[in-house]
Computed example of a mutant assay.
Amino acid sequence: MTTIEFIFAILALLLTPGPTNTLLAVGAAAGGFRASLPYMVAEVLAYLIVVIPLATVAAPLLSAYPMATAALKAGAAMWIFYLAIRLWLPESGQARAVGARHVFITTLLNPKAVIIGLVIMPHGTLLAIGPRLALLAGLIAAASLSWIAFGAFALSAGGRFKRAHMRRLGAVVLAAFSLFLTSSLIR
């Protein structure tokens, strides 16, 4: 895969709405752009934590143990459903609905990370794939910032949607994604 193809493949995947992007937009709509910057760092770190072992070691192991893949999907579906409920319920005064920890865990469980690590990233030693990992980190940061900007500016209280509507819409997207993951376990 050429560098241009790699860039387009990664951006197409990362800019597609999903659980992490929903949290980025909802969190930024509630807290603003600057307060949401730690979400970008959490997302980059989580993707790298998943992608590096997959691209360097785990690809052959996961194909040998299909139950491990099913367990990962089940865990991801449960976490995403939990986040959907948390977004749907009214915000309590004690905790924010979205935090960097939520973005980090959701990204760790996001199937996009597995697709990147097993399909898009080249496989090999850490030294061999290092330049693509650096490019990947930059693309993740750029995609993350675009979702944060979308949430902070387009969906803020002064924007078209009110925060409560955005939280509910985010909850519906997350619940649908959780159901999609669960249904993929049945096939």
Rank of each mutant, 00 (worst) to 15 (best):
A74M: 06
A74T: 05
G75C: 04
A76D: 02
A76Q: 00
A77C: 01
A77S: 04
A77D: 00
M78C: 07
M78F: 10
M78S: 05
M78N: 02
W79F: 03
W79T: 04
I80F: 02
I80M: 00
I80S: 02
F81D: 03
Y82F: 12
Y82R: 11
Y82V: 07
L83Y: 02
L83T: 00
I85N: 00
R86I: 02
R86F: 01
R86C: 01
W88E: 01
W88R: 00
W88A: 03
W88V: 04
L89Y: 01
L89T: 03
P90Q: 06
P90M: 05
P90Y: 08
S92R: 06
G93E: 14
G93N: 14
G93F: 07
G93H: 10
Q94C: 12
Q94E: 14
Q94N: 13
A95N: 13
A95T: 12
A95W: 15
R96D: 13
A97W: 13
A97F: 15
R101G: 02
R101F: 00
H102Y: 14
H102C: 08
F104A: 08
F104C: 04
I105P: 01
I105M: 00
T106F: 02
L109I: 08
L109C: 14
P111E: 06
P111L: 11
K112M: 09
K112Y: 01
K112C: 03
K112N: 12
A113D: 03
V114R: 01
V114A: 10
V114S: 07
I115T: 08
I115G: 05
I116N: 06
I116V: 14
G117A: 06
G117W: 13
L118Y: 05
L118I: 07
V119F: 12
V119C: 13
I120Q: 07
I120C: 10
M121Q: 12
M121S: 12
M121K: 11
M121V: 10
P122S: 13
P122T: 12
P122K: 09
P122G: 09
H123G: 11
G124S: 10
G124T: 05
G124H: 07
T125D: 13
T125C: 09
L126Y: 11
L126Q: 08
L127A: 08
L127S: 12
L127N: 10
A128S: 15
A128H: 01
I129T: 10
I129S: 05
G130Q: 12
G130L: 15
G130T: 09
P131T: 07
R132H: 14
R132Y: 15
R132I: 07
L133R: 06
L133Q: 08
L133K: 08
A134I: 15
A134S: 12
L135C: 13
L136W: 04
L136Y: 06
A137D: 08
G138K: 06
G138F: 11
G138T: 10
G138E: 06
L139R: 04
L139E: 02
L139F: 06
L139H: 07
I140E: 00
A141K: 02
A142L: 15
A142G: 13
A143W: 05
A143I: 09
A143V: 00
S144P: 04
L145W: 11
S146M: 15
S146P: 13
W147D: 14
I148G: 08
I148R: 12
A149R: 12
F150D: 09
F150W: 14
G151N: 11
G151L: 09
G151P: 07
G151K: 04
